[in-house]
Nucleic acid binder design. Structure first.
Lengths: 220, 220
DNA sequence: TAAAATTTTTAGACAAGTCTAAAAATATTT
DNA sequence: AAATATTTTTAGACTTGTCTAAAAATTTTA
């Protein structure tokens, strides 16, 4: 069957897929509504529609999960989104905090070969500007190991490999703090009271809230 | 006032603008319906909507014309479309017959700076792959002189500078006939009966119908 | 210039996607 | 386990853009 989905359908699939990946469980109507910034009743309608098309599995009152067909569409939308982000940053020289909303539109362009040609032009990148892995042509995607800066022990060092939140405000904060992908961070102390962290970055010391540290992916 | 138009609205504006440029007269409902591949009643509805927004001037039963606000939106959509076509052909190496439909989607991406950055990346091209002039950042656009191959006299030579029809089938025909932008064509004879032309192109002689010759822009 | 043909508009309907308000089901608390 | 709270679904409405069919206006023809 040939799927020609609306942007709305693709966005819902992406949301259900990514919440499912994050939580590993069936995805609730309210979780989807929150992510899609819409009302639960709208979600119910759309989930029913996607379910009728065989793209999600839904049990009334029990949440939804993407089927394998749904997953492959969601992954291909993610691939498109992330490749466009690479293009916007690497080729058009946008800053990493400017590209999310534009890529959100570009990801829905329908063409058999556009994304693959873009992939080739960009020399088959593995990660987007926010450190998210880019699925290959066949939908194979490497998943983040989900190690957050907030879980790093005092005295330990790590390298920033990604951001969980791609909002402009968060990314601008990181720019100002001198934090970007690949940067080495040493955790000096963690405050018991609010889990704020003292960090050493290139011999400068800064303090960040838990809100910040739990949105940064790092590796040892 | 800030205009945030739907893709449908932008497409109608583009259609009304370009038919208006071609004919120099008020644009009829049926002409728009033909171009938009829709019904006259749908056109009436949309024209009313655009008129309410001050983007077209409409007198009942007498056709429509874009206002200056409408024109500037139409021109900026054209600019976007043509720059994306350049990108698709020059950067992603699509053939010129593959890009129209994709650019038709890309032209509607909403971003303050995307098109200008694309323009810069492409080194401010003046013409798209079909020879159509690209409006500059301020909406200034050079118009074709509308000299068609069909109006060239026998024994005269000319250079192909554009195509009026950007359909894949026409462009594929041109590829097969060895006709591309910049190619020199000598008109040998014009048939009285059906206005078909004998052409000499790089010492090869071919015959083309009036349908073909009236869709090729040329210069002396 | 009256009749016929064509064009345009109106009226009413439909699909997609959203919303609010209320009902139904499930989960939590006591 | 009953009462309460929360979540989810249903019902009905609205918007955008489309359509068909019929009415109104305009243009063409005789």
């Amino acid at each position: 069957m040939k799927f020609n989905l609306s942007q709305a359908e693709e966005n819902y699939l992406k949301a259900i897929y990514s919440i499912g990946i994050d939580t590993g469980k069936s995805v609730n109507t309210n979780q989807i509504a929150l992510k899609m910034k819409t009302k639960a009743s709208s979600v119910t309608d759309m989930v029913k529609k996607l379910s009728d098309k065989g793209l999600v599995e839904h049990k009334k009152y029990k949440g939804a999960l993407v089927t394998s067909k749904g997953e492959s569409i969601a992954v291909s939308t993610l691939r498109s989104h992330r490749l466009w982000e690479c293009f916007l940053v690497d080729t058009l020289e946008f800053n990493w905090d400017e590209v999310h909303d534009i890529a959100e539109q570009l990801e829905h362009i329908k063409s058999d070969s556009l994304v693959d040609r873009l992939d080739k032009f960009l020399n088959f990148p593995s990660y987007d500007p926010h450190g998210d892995p880019i699925p290959d042509k066949n939908g194979v995607i490497e998943h983040h190991k989900n190690v957050m800066l907030s879980s790093v022990d005092p005295e330990a060092s790590c390298i920033v490999i990604g951001v969980k939140d791609s909002s402009s405000s968060f990314l601008k904060f990181l720019d100002n703090a001198g934090i970007c992908l690949g940067k080495k961070i040493k955790v000096l102390t963690v405050e018991d009271f609010d889990q704020s962290m003292q960090l050493e970055i290139e011999s400068k010391v800064i303090t960040v809230s838990h809100q910040i540290s739990k949105n940064l992916y790092v590796k040892k």
